[in-house]
C-alpha cells in the first residue's frame, strides 16, 4: 500500500511538473516578428514561394503548440524546434527579399534609363531625319509614335516608386525597342540617301 501511494505521489508530481510547461511565447513572438519583418520588406510580392513556405512552417509550429496545450504531459521541445527553424527561414527570407528587391529595382532603373535614352535619341534623329521624297508623312507618323512613347515613359517612374519593378522593366524594354526601331528606320533611310 505504501509503495502504491509513493507511485501515485510520484506520478502526480511528474504530471503537475509536466503540465506546468508553458507555451514558448518568446519564441512565438520572435518568429512572428521575423515573418512580419520579411513581409514588410515585400516577401509576398518578390519571393512569394519562399514566403509561403515560411508561413506554412510557422503554422505547423503553432499546430504543434496547440497539440501540446491540450495534453496532460506537455512537451514544447518540438514546437521550439519548429519555431526556431521558421525564424531562421524568416530571417533568411527577409534578407533574400531585400536582395531580390534591390536587384529588380536596379534592373528597372537601368531599363528606364535605357528607354529614356532611346526615346531621346529617336526624337533627336527625327529632327534631323532626311526629308527626301516620301519621308515627310512617315516622319510625322514616327513623331506621333515617339510622343506616345514619351507619354508612356512618364508612367515608369511611378511604377518604380510603387515597387512594381518587373512591370517597370518590361514596359521600359518595350518602349526602348519601339524607340530603337524608329532610330533604325531613320539610320537606314539616311544610309540609303547617302548611297544615292
Amino acid at each position: 500500500m505504501k509503495n502504491l501511494l509513493v507511485l501515485i505521489a510520484g506520478l502526480a508530481l511528474v504530471s503537475s511538473l509536466a503540465g506546468c510547461a508553458k507555451p514558448p511565447q518568446e519564441e512565438m513572438n520572435g518568429t512572428k516578428a521575423a515573418i512580419e519583418a520579411a513581409a514588410a520588406e515585400g516577401s509576398a510580392k518578390y519571393v512569394a514561394e519562399d514566403n509561403k513556405k515560411v508561413n506554412d512552417e510557422y503554422a505547423a509550429a503553432l499546430e504543434e503548440i496547440k497539440v501540446q496545450e491540450a495534453k496532460w504531459f506537455k512537451n514544447y521541445d518540438k514546437a521550439k524546434q519548429l519555431l526556431a527553424q521558421a525564424k531562421a527561414d524568416a530571417d533568411a527570407l527577409k534578407a533574400k527579399t531585400a536582395t531580390v528587391k534591390e536587384e529588380l529595382k536596379q534592373e528597372a532603373v537601368a531599363a528606364f534609363a535605357e528607354a529614356t535614352t532611346a526615346v531621346t535619341d529617336a526624337k533627336a534623329k527625327l529632327e534631323t531625319a532626311p526629308k527626301g521624297k516620301g519621308s515627310a508623312a512617315d516622319i510625322e507618323a514616327m513623331k506621333a509614335d515617339a510622343a506616345g512613347m514619351e507619354a508612356e515613359l512618364a508612367t515608369i517612374e511611378p511604377l518604380i516608386e510603387q515597387g512594381e519593378f518587373v512591370a517597370a522593366s518590361e514596359k521600359a524594354a518595350s518602349i526602348r525597342d519601339r524607340a530603337n526601331a524608329i532610330s533604325t528606320q531613320i539610320d537606314e533611310a539616311a544610309a540609303k540617301k547617302a548611297r544615292k
Binding site: A137, D138, E140, A144, D145, G148, R178
Partner: peptide, 25 residues
C-alpha cells in the same frame, strides 16, 4: 500609312498599344 494624313497618326494610338502590352503582361 496609306493616306498619310497626320491626324491619323496619333500619339494616343502608341500609348494604347503600349497599354495593351501591359495588359497582356
Amino acid at each position: 500609312g496609306t493616306l498619310k494624313d497626320r491626324r491619323l497618326a496619333m500619339r494616343k494610338l502608341t500609348q494604347a498599344d503600349i497599354r495593351i502590352e501591359d495588359a497582356r503582361r
